[in-house]
Design a protein around this nucleic acid. Structure first.
Lengths: 208, 208
DNA sequence: CCCGCTATTGGACAAGCGCGCAACAGGTGC
DNA sequence: GCACCTGTTGCGCGCTTGTCCAATAGCGGG
Protein backbone atom coordinates (compact mmCIF):
# COMPACT_ATOMS: atom_id res chain seq x y z
CA UNK A 1 0.00 0.00 0.00
CA UNK A 2 0.87 3.63 0.22
CA UNK A 3 4.17 4.40 1.84
CA UNK A 4 3.70 6.82 4.74
CA UNK A 5 6.14 8.63 6.99
CA UNK A 6 6.45 7.25 10.51
CA UNK A 7 4.42 10.12 11.96
CA UNK A 8 1.66 9.74 9.41
CA UNK A 9 1.57 6.00 9.90
CA UNK A 10 1.39 6.23 13.64
CA UNK A 11 -1.48 8.65 13.30
CA UNK A 12 -3.19 6.36 10.81
CA UNK A 13 -2.86 3.43 13.19
CA UNK A 14 -4.31 5.46 16.04
CA UNK A 15 -7.28 6.59 13.99
CA UNK A 16 -7.90 3.12 12.63
CA UNK A 17 -7.78 1.75 16.16
CA UNK A 18 -10.38 4.26 17.31
CA UNK A 19 -12.59 3.50 14.31
CA UNK A 20 -12.56 -0.18 15.20
CA UNK A 21 -12.98 0.49 18.91
CA UNK A 22 -15.98 2.63 18.10
CA UNK A 23 -17.53 -0.34 16.32
CA UNK A 24 -16.49 -3.30 18.45
CA UNK A 25 -15.34 -1.80 21.71
CA UNK A 26 -11.81 -1.11 22.87
CA UNK A 27 -11.36 -4.45 24.56
CA UNK A 28 -12.39 -6.35 21.44
CA UNK A 29 -10.08 -4.43 19.14
CA UNK A 30 -7.47 -6.72 17.56
CA UNK A 31 -4.32 -6.14 15.57
CA UNK A 32 -5.86 -7.60 12.44
CA UNK A 33 -8.95 -5.42 12.73
CA UNK A 34 -6.79 -2.34 12.89
CA UNK A 35 -4.71 -3.47 9.92
CA UNK A 36 -7.82 -4.25 7.89
CA UNK A 37 -9.23 -0.84 8.74
CA UNK A 38 -6.09 0.75 7.28
CA UNK A 39 -6.00 -1.69 4.40
CA UNK A 40 -2.51 -2.85 5.31
CA UNK A 41 -0.95 -5.97 6.75
CA UNK A 42 -1.03 -6.74 10.44
CA UNK A 43 2.72 -6.80 10.88
CA UNK A 44 2.83 -3.08 10.26
CA UNK A 45 1.12 -2.29 13.54
CA UNK A 46 3.79 -4.06 15.57
CA UNK A 47 6.47 -2.26 13.62
CA UNK A 48 5.34 0.98 15.25
CA UNK A 49 4.10 -0.23 18.62
CA UNK A 50 5.66 -2.74 20.98
CA UNK A 51 2.43 -4.34 22.06
CA UNK A 52 -1.31 -4.19 21.60
CA UNK A 53 -1.60 -2.72 25.07
CA UNK A 54 0.46 0.24 23.90
CA UNK A 55 -1.64 0.67 20.75
CA UNK A 56 -4.82 0.82 22.79
CA UNK A 57 -3.27 3.13 25.37
CA UNK A 58 -1.99 5.61 22.79
CA UNK A 59 -5.25 5.54 20.84
CA UNK A 60 -7.28 6.08 23.98
CA UNK A 61 -5.01 8.89 25.06
CA UNK A 62 -5.47 10.51 21.67
CA UNK A 63 -9.27 10.42 21.80
CA UNK A 64 -9.70 11.27 25.46
CA UNK A 65 -6.97 13.89 25.36
CA UNK A 66 -8.77 15.65 22.53
CA UNK A 67 -11.98 15.67 24.54
CA UNK A 68 -10.14 17.11 27.51
CA UNK A 69 -8.56 19.83 25.39
CA UNK A 70 -11.95 20.69 23.92
CA UNK A 71 -13.46 20.94 27.39
CA UNK A 72 -10.59 23.17 28.51
CA UNK A 73 -11.18 25.47 25.54
CA UNK A 74 -14.91 25.70 26.19
CA UNK A 75 -14.31 26.45 29.85
CA UNK A 76 -11.69 29.08 29.05
CA UNK A 77 -14.20 31.05 27.02
CA UNK A 78 -16.77 31.36 29.79
CA UNK A 79 -16.35 34.49 31.95
CA UNK A 80 -17.76 33.39 35.33
CA UNK A 81 -17.22 30.17 37.23
CA UNK A 82 -20.95 29.46 37.09
CA UNK A 83 -20.97 29.68 33.33
CA UNK A 84 -17.74 27.70 33.14
CA UNK A 85 -19.33 24.87 35.04
CA UNK A 86 -22.45 24.98 32.88
CA UNK A 87 -20.33 24.93 29.74
CA UNK A 88 -18.30 22.03 31.09
CA UNK A 89 -21.36 19.96 31.86
CA UNK A 90 -22.95 20.70 28.51
CA UNK A 91 -19.70 19.80 26.76
CA UNK A 92 -18.95 16.71 28.80
CA UNK A 93 -22.31 14.99 29.02
CA UNK A 94 -23.36 14.85 25.36
CA UNK A 95 -19.91 13.79 24.28
CA UNK A 96 -20.00 10.97 26.77
CA UNK A 97 -23.41 9.88 25.63
CA UNK A 98 -22.10 8.79 22.26
CA UNK A 99 -19.67 5.96 21.83
CA UNK A 100 -17.13 7.97 23.87
CA UNK A 101 -18.49 6.76 27.18
CA UNK A 102 -18.36 3.18 25.95
CA UNK A 103 -14.72 3.87 25.16
CA UNK A 104 -14.11 5.08 28.70
CA UNK A 105 -16.00 2.15 30.13
CA UNK A 106 -13.94 -0.31 28.15
CA UNK A 107 -10.75 1.49 29.07
CA UNK A 108 -11.58 1.40 32.77
CA UNK A 109 -12.44 -2.27 32.72
CA UNK A 110 -9.48 -3.19 30.55
CA UNK A 111 -7.14 -1.12 32.69
CA UNK A 112 -7.12 -3.89 35.26
CA UNK A 113 -5.28 -6.12 32.82
CA UNK A 114 -3.35 -3.69 30.60
CA UNK A 115 -0.66 -1.64 32.36
CA UNK A 116 -0.15 1.01 29.70
CA UNK A 117 -3.86 1.62 29.41
CA UNK A 118 -4.14 1.88 33.17
CA UNK A 119 -1.48 4.57 33.28
CA UNK A 120 -3.18 6.68 30.64
CA UNK A 121 -6.59 6.22 32.21
CA UNK A 122 -5.40 7.25 35.65
CA UNK A 123 -3.58 10.29 34.34
CA UNK A 124 -6.50 11.51 32.28
CA UNK A 125 -9.03 11.00 35.05
CA UNK A 126 -6.90 13.01 37.39
CA UNK A 127 -6.75 15.77 34.77
CA UNK A 128 -10.53 15.88 34.42
CA UNK A 129 -10.95 16.16 38.16
CA UNK A 130 -8.32 18.88 38.33
CA UNK A 131 -10.21 20.87 35.69
CA UNK A 132 -13.46 20.70 37.65
CA UNK A 133 -11.67 21.39 40.91
CA UNK A 134 -10.12 24.57 39.52
CA UNK A 135 -13.51 25.78 38.29
CA UNK A 136 -15.03 25.17 41.71
CA UNK A 137 -12.10 26.79 43.52
CA UNK A 138 -12.31 29.85 41.26
CA UNK A 139 -16.03 30.04 41.92
CA UNK A 140 -15.46 29.96 45.64
CA UNK A 141 -12.92 32.79 45.63
CA UNK A 142 -15.22 34.77 43.34
CA UNK A 143 -18.06 34.27 45.77
CA UNK A 144 -20.20 32.40 43.26
CA UNK A 145 -19.91 29.04 44.94
CA UNK A 146 -19.83 27.85 48.51
CA UNK A 147 -18.29 24.57 49.54
CA UNK A 148 -16.09 23.42 52.37
CA UNK A 149 -14.12 21.01 50.18
CA UNK A 150 -13.63 21.88 46.48
CA UNK A 151 -11.71 18.68 45.91
CA UNK A 152 -14.52 16.48 47.18
CA UNK A 153 -17.14 18.55 45.37
CA UNK A 154 -15.25 18.12 42.11
CA UNK A 155 -15.06 14.36 42.58
CA UNK A 156 -18.76 14.21 43.33
CA UNK A 157 -19.73 16.26 40.30
CA UNK A 158 -17.54 14.21 38.02
CA UNK A 159 -18.97 11.05 39.54
CA UNK A 160 -22.53 12.15 38.88
CA UNK A 161 -21.61 12.96 35.32
CA UNK A 162 -19.79 9.66 34.81
CA UNK A 163 -22.45 7.64 36.55
CA UNK A 164 -25.35 9.13 34.62
CA UNK A 165 -23.55 8.93 31.28
CA UNK A 166 -22.70 5.35 32.09
CA UNK A 167 -26.35 4.56 32.62
CA UNK A 168 -27.14 6.03 29.24
CA UNK A 169 -24.59 3.97 27.38
CA UNK A 170 -24.85 0.72 29.33
CA UNK A 171 -28.56 0.68 30.11
CA UNK A 172 -30.03 2.68 27.30
CA UNK A 173 -33.51 4.13 27.40
CA UNK A 174 -33.82 4.61 31.14
CA UNK A 175 -32.42 8.11 30.91
CA UNK A 176 -31.16 10.22 28.01
CA UNK A 177 -28.64 12.96 27.37
CA UNK A 178 -31.02 15.72 28.32
CA UNK A 179 -31.54 14.20 31.72
CA UNK A 180 -27.80 13.84 32.20
CA UNK A 181 -27.27 17.55 31.57
CA UNK A 182 -30.31 18.76 33.50
CA UNK A 183 -29.79 16.46 36.46
CA UNK A 184 -26.09 17.20 36.70
CA UNK A 185 -26.82 20.92 36.66
CA UNK A 186 -29.34 20.37 39.42
CA UNK A 187 -26.71 18.45 41.36
CA UNK A 188 -24.23 21.28 40.85
CA UNK A 189 -26.78 23.76 42.16
CA UNK A 190 -27.38 21.76 45.29
CA UNK A 191 -23.71 21.08 45.69
CA UNK A 192 -22.21 24.51 45.22
CA UNK A 193 -24.70 27.36 45.47
CA UNK A 194 -24.62 29.22 48.79
CA UNK A 195 -27.99 29.29 50.51
CA UNK A 196 -28.10 33.03 51.32
CA UNK A 197 -28.13 35.11 48.09
CA UNK A 198 -30.57 33.36 45.81
CA UNK A 199 -31.77 36.13 43.49
CA UNK A 200 -28.46 37.00 41.81
CA UNK A 201 -27.62 33.37 41.21
CA UNK A 202 -30.95 32.57 39.64
CA UNK A 203 -30.53 35.53 37.31
CA UNK A 204 -27.08 34.62 36.06
CA UNK A 205 -27.97 30.96 35.72
CA UNK A 206 -31.21 31.20 33.79
CA UNK A 207 -29.66 33.66 31.37
CA UNK A 208 -27.51 30.90 29.77
CA UNK B 1 -14.34 -36.37 39.94
CA UNK B 2 -17.13 -36.29 42.46
CA UNK B 3 -20.60 -36.85 41.09
CA UNK B 4 -22.91 -33.97 42.00
CA UNK B 5 -26.60 -33.36 41.50
CA UNK B 6 -27.52 -30.86 38.78
CA UNK B 7 -28.37 -28.17 41.32
CA UNK B 8 -25.15 -28.65 43.24
CA UNK B 9 -23.14 -28.67 40.04
CA UNK B 10 -24.73 -25.50 38.73
CA UNK B 11 -23.99 -23.82 42.01
CA UNK B 12 -20.42 -25.10 41.91
CA UNK B 13 -19.96 -23.72 38.42
CA UNK B 14 -21.34 -20.34 39.45
CA UNK B 15 -19.05 -20.12 42.46
CA UNK B 16 -16.04 -21.26 40.48
CA UNK B 17 -16.84 -18.65 37.85
CA UNK B 18 -16.96 -15.92 40.47
CA UNK B 19 -13.72 -17.13 42.02
CA UNK B 20 -11.98 -16.86 38.65
CA UNK B 21 -13.65 -13.55 37.83
CA UNK B 22 -12.42 -12.22 41.13
CA UNK B 23 -8.87 -13.08 40.10
CA UNK B 24 -8.81 -12.34 36.37
CA UNK B 25 -11.86 -10.22 35.75
CA UNK B 26 -15.23 -11.27 34.40
CA UNK B 27 -14.34 -10.55 30.79
CA UNK B 28 -11.22 -12.68 30.97
CA UNK B 29 -12.94 -15.66 32.55
CA UNK B 30 -12.79 -18.71 30.29
CA UNK B 31 -14.48 -22.09 30.28
CA UNK B 32 -11.22 -23.85 31.02
CA UNK B 33 -10.44 -21.56 33.95
CA UNK B 34 -13.79 -22.35 35.50
CA UNK B 35 -13.31 -26.08 34.96
CA UNK B 36 -9.81 -25.98 36.47
CA UNK B 37 -11.17 -24.06 39.45
CA UNK B 38 -13.65 -26.88 40.06
CA UNK B 39 -11.08 -29.55 39.27
CA UNK B 40 -13.23 -31.00 36.52
CA UNK B 41 -13.14 -31.12 32.75
CA UNK B 42 -14.20 -28.20 30.61
CA UNK B 43 -16.97 -30.06 28.80
CA UNK B 44 -18.93 -30.17 32.03
CA UNK B 45 -19.57 -26.46 31.97
CA UNK B 46 -21.23 -26.64 28.57
CA UNK B 47 -23.33 -29.53 29.76
CA UNK B 48 -25.11 -27.18 32.15
CA UNK B 49 -25.00 -23.89 30.28
CA UNK B 50 -25.66 -23.18 26.63
CA UNK B 51 -22.94 -20.58 26.22
CA UNK B 52 -20.23 -18.76 28.10
CA UNK B 53 -22.35 -15.63 27.93
CA UNK B 54 -25.00 -17.42 29.97
CA UNK B 55 -22.46 -18.67 32.51
CA UNK B 56 -21.18 -15.15 33.10
CA UNK B 57 -24.69 -13.71 33.23
CA UNK B 58 -25.91 -16.24 35.79
CA UNK B 59 -22.78 -15.92 37.89
CA UNK B 60 -23.01 -12.15 37.86
CA UNK B 61 -26.67 -12.27 38.73
CA UNK B 62 -25.85 -14.55 41.66
CA UNK B 63 -23.20 -12.24 43.10
CA UNK B 64 -24.94 -8.95 42.44
CA UNK B 65 -28.32 -10.30 43.48
CA UNK B 66 -26.91 -11.33 46.82
CA UNK B 67 -25.50 -7.83 47.34
CA UNK B 68 -28.88 -6.35 46.49
CA UNK B 69 -30.65 -8.64 48.93
CA UNK B 70 -28.19 -7.75 51.63
CA UNK B 71 -28.74 -4.05 51.02
CA UNK B 72 -32.51 -4.54 51.16
CA UNK B 73 -32.18 -6.31 54.48
CA UNK B 74 -30.00 -3.60 55.95
CA UNK B 75 -32.39 -0.90 54.77
CA UNK B 76 -35.42 -2.74 56.13
CA UNK B 77 -33.94 -2.69 59.62
CA UNK B 78 -33.48 1.06 59.79
CA UNK B 79 -36.48 2.95 61.21
CA UNK B 80 -36.29 6.35 59.52
CA UNK B 81 -35.57 7.21 55.89
CA UNK B 82 -32.50 9.16 56.91
CA UNK B 83 -31.06 6.15 58.68
CA UNK B 84 -32.09 3.89 55.83
CA UNK B 85 -30.11 6.00 53.40
CA UNK B 86 -27.11 6.09 55.71
CA UNK B 87 -27.26 2.34 56.11
CA UNK B 88 -27.55 1.89 52.38
CA UNK B 89 -24.52 4.04 51.66
CA UNK B 90 -22.45 2.33 54.31
CA UNK B 91 -23.47 -1.05 52.97
CA UNK B 92 -23.06 -0.19 49.32
CA UNK B 93 -19.80 1.70 49.26
CA UNK B 94 -17.46 -0.66 51.10
CA UNK B 95 -18.82 -3.67 49.26
CA UNK B 96 -18.16 -1.95 45.97
CA UNK B 97 -14.65 -1.01 47.01
CA UNK B 98 -13.55 -4.61 47.01
CA UNK B 99 -13.42 -6.67 43.87
CA UNK B 100 -17.18 -6.29 43.57
CA UNK B 101 -16.92 -2.98 41.78
CA UNK B 102 -14.42 -4.46 39.34
CA UNK B 103 -17.02 -7.14 38.70
CA UNK B 104 -19.66 -4.51 37.94
CA UNK B 105 -17.25 -2.58 35.78
CA UNK B 106 -16.41 -5.66 33.76
CA UNK B 107 -20.07 -6.58 33.50
CA UNK B 108 -21.02 -3.12 32.22
CA UNK B 109 -18.26 -3.08 29.65
CA UNK B 110 -18.86 -6.65 28.56
CA UNK B 111 -22.61 -6.07 28.38
CA UNK B 112 -22.11 -4.29 25.07
CA UNK B 113 -21.06 -7.58 23.50
CA UNK B 114 -22.88 -10.21 25.58
CA UNK B 115 -26.68 -10.16 25.38
CA UNK B 116 -27.46 -12.29 28.42
CA UNK B 117 -25.09 -10.29 30.59
CA UNK B 118 -26.63 -7.07 29.33
CA UNK B 119 -30.11 -8.21 30.35
CA UNK B 120 -29.02 -9.09 33.86
CA UNK B 121 -27.03 -5.90 34.25
CA UNK B 122 -29.91 -3.70 33.15
CA UNK B 123 -32.39 -5.44 35.38
CA UNK B 124 -30.19 -5.26 38.46
CA UNK B 125 -29.28 -1.64 37.95
CA UNK B 126 -32.92 -0.72 37.70
CA UNK B 127 -33.53 -2.60 40.96
CA UNK B 128 -30.79 -0.67 42.76
CA UNK B 129 -32.23 2.62 41.61
CA UNK B 130 -35.71 1.55 42.63
CA UNK B 131 -34.44 0.76 46.12
CA UNK B 132 -32.89 4.19 46.52
CA UNK B 133 -35.89 5.88 44.95
CA UNK B 134 -38.25 4.26 47.44
CA UNK B 135 -36.08 5.37 50.35
CA UNK B 136 -36.08 8.93 49.04
CA UNK B 137 -39.82 8.90 48.36
CA UNK B 138 -40.52 7.59 51.85
CA UNK B 139 -38.30 10.29 53.27
CA UNK B 140 -40.21 12.96 51.39
CA UNK B 141 -43.61 11.83 52.60
CA UNK B 142 -42.21 11.56 56.13
CA UNK B 143 -40.96 15.13 55.88
CA UNK B 144 -37.32 14.11 56.34
CA UNK B 145 -36.25 14.89 52.79
CA UNK B 146 -37.14 17.56 50.28
CA UNK B 147 -36.74 17.08 46.57
CA UNK B 148 -38.85 17.88 43.55
CA UNK B 149 -37.88 14.71 41.71
CA UNK B 150 -37.15 11.58 43.80
CA UNK B 151 -36.39 9.60 40.69
CA UNK B 152 -33.67 11.99 39.54
CA UNK B 153 -32.31 12.30 43.07
CA UNK B 154 -32.02 8.54 43.32
CA UNK B 155 -30.17 8.34 40.01
CA UNK B 156 -27.80 11.08 41.13
CA UNK B 157 -27.07 9.45 44.46
CA UNK B 158 -26.43 6.10 42.85
CA UNK B 159 -24.22 7.78 40.27
CA UNK B 160 -22.12 9.45 42.93
CA UNK B 161 -21.74 6.13 44.69
CA UNK B 162 -20.87 4.28 41.49
CA UNK B 163 -18.58 6.99 40.22
CA UNK B 164 -16.62 7.29 43.46
CA UNK B 165 -16.36 3.52 43.95
CA UNK B 166 -15.21 3.26 40.37
CA UNK B 167 -12.42 5.72 41.06
CA UNK B 168 -11.31 3.62 43.99
CA UNK B 169 -11.12 0.40 42.03
CA UNK B 170 -9.86 1.73 38.72
CA UNK B 171 -7.55 4.48 39.92
CA UNK B 172 -6.56 3.32 43.33
CA UNK B 173 -5.03 5.58 45.93
CA UNK B 174 -6.62 8.84 44.82
CA UNK B 175 -9.53 8.28 47.16
CA UNK B 176 -10.42 5.49 49.58
CA UNK B 177 -13.50 3.81 50.96
CA UNK B 178 -13.82 6.28 53.79
CA UNK B 179 -14.00 9.16 51.35
CA UNK B 180 -16.62 7.33 49.31
CA UNK B 181 -18.87 6.95 52.32
CA UNK B 182 -18.25 10.41 53.76
CA UNK B 183 -18.52 12.21 50.44
CA UNK B 184 -21.65 10.39 49.40
CA UNK B 185 -23.28 11.22 52.71
CA UNK B 186 -22.37 14.85 52.15
CA UNK B 187 -23.90 14.65 48.68
CA UNK B 188 -27.05 13.12 50.12
CA UNK B 189 -27.28 15.95 52.65
CA UNK B 190 -27.00 18.60 49.96
CA UNK B 191 -29.31 16.69 47.68
CA UNK B 192 -32.15 15.86 50.02
CA UNK B 193 -32.13 17.96 53.18
CA UNK B 194 -34.87 20.60 53.10
CA UNK B 195 -33.52 23.91 51.84
CA UNK B 196 -35.89 26.11 49.92
CA UNK B 197 -33.76 27.96 47.35
CA UNK B 198 -32.07 24.88 45.94
CA UNK B 199 -35.34 23.19 45.15
CA UNK B 200 -36.83 26.17 43.34
CA UNK B 201 -33.73 26.70 41.21
CA UNK B 202 -33.61 23.10 40.23
CA UNK B 203 -37.24 23.28 39.24
CA UNK B 204 -36.74 26.26 36.95
CA UNK B 205 -33.75 24.60 35.39
CA UNK B 206 -35.23 21.29 34.46
CA UNK B 207 -38.10 23.14 32.88
CA UNK B 208 -35.53 24.99 30.68
C1' DC C 1 19.82 5.50 -13.68
C1' DC C 2 20.57 2.72 -9.93
C1' DC C 3 21.41 1.68 -5.25
C1' DG C 4 20.38 1.55 -0.56
C1' DC C 5 17.41 2.57 3.13
C1' DT C 6 13.20 1.54 5.16
C1' DA C 7 8.27 1.12 5.10
C1' DT C 8 5.60 -2.77 4.27
C1' DT C 9 4.38 -7.47 3.41
C1' DG C 10 2.36 -11.93 4.51
C1' DG C 11 2.53 -15.76 6.72
C1' DA C 12 4.52 -18.84 10.55
C1' DC C 13 4.04 -19.70 15.25
C1' DA C 14 2.35 -21.09 19.75
C1' DA C 15 -1.15 -20.34 22.65
C1' DG C 16 -5.82 -19.84 23.71
C1' DC C 17 -10.74 -19.55 22.76
C1' DG C 18 -15.89 -21.55 22.70
C1' DC C 19 -18.11 -25.48 21.56
C1' DG C 20 -19.49 -30.36 20.62
C1' DC C 21 -19.31 -35.28 21.00
C1' DA C 22 -18.37 -40.19 21.55
C1' DA C 23 -16.79 -42.75 25.27
C1' DC C 24 -16.56 -43.67 30.15
C1' DA C 25 -17.86 -44.45 35.08
C1' DG C 26 -20.28 -44.77 39.13
C1' DG C 27 -24.39 -44.63 41.93
C1' DT C 28 -29.39 -46.62 41.82
C1' DG C 29 -33.14 -49.62 41.21
C1' DC C 30 -34.35 -54.22 39.90
C1' DG D 1 -25.00 -58.80 40.93
C1' DC D 2 -26.40 -56.78 36.78
C1' DA D 3 -28.07 -53.29 33.72
C1' DC D 4 -29.39 -48.77 33.12
C1' DC D 5 -29.20 -43.95 33.59
C1' DT D 6 -26.78 -39.90 33.76
C1' DG D 7 -23.00 -37.05 35.43
C1' DT D 8 -18.44 -36.69 33.70
C1' DT D 9 -14.46 -37.19 30.83
C1' DG D 10 -10.95 -35.91 27.50
C1' DC D 11 -10.00 -34.56 23.38
C1' DG D 12 -10.71 -32.70 18.74
C1' DC D 13 -12.42 -29.13 15.77
C1' DG D 14 -12.26 -24.60 13.69
C1' DC D 15 -11.13 -20.28 14.66
C1' DT D 16 -8.84 -16.16 16.68
C1' DT D 17 -5.37 -14.00 19.29
C1' DG D 18 -0.56 -11.39 19.92
C1' DT D 19 3.95 -11.61 18.40
C1' DC D 20 7.74 -12.14 15.43
C1' DC D 21 10.67 -12.15 11.20
C1' DA D 22 12.68 -13.03 6.68
C1' DA D 23 11.42 -11.32 2.26
C1' DT D 24 9.76 -7.64 -0.65
C1' DA D 25 8.85 -3.21 -2.77
C1' DG D 26 9.21 1.56 -3.64
C1' DC D 27 10.86 6.22 -2.80
C1' DG D 28 14.93 9.51 -2.40
C1' DG D 29 19.82 10.74 -2.84
C1' DG D 30 24.10 9.85 -5.36
Amino acid sequence: MARLSPDERRRAIIEATLAVARRNGLGATTVRDVADEMGTSSGLVHHYFDSMDEVLAVAFEHAAGADLERARAVVAEAPTATEQLDAFIACYAPAQSDWTMQLWLDAWAEAARRPALRNVSQRLNRAWQELVRSIVADGVTAGEFATDDPDAAAWRLLSVLDGLALQVVAHEALIGRDEVVAWTRAAADRELLPSAPAATRAATRTRR
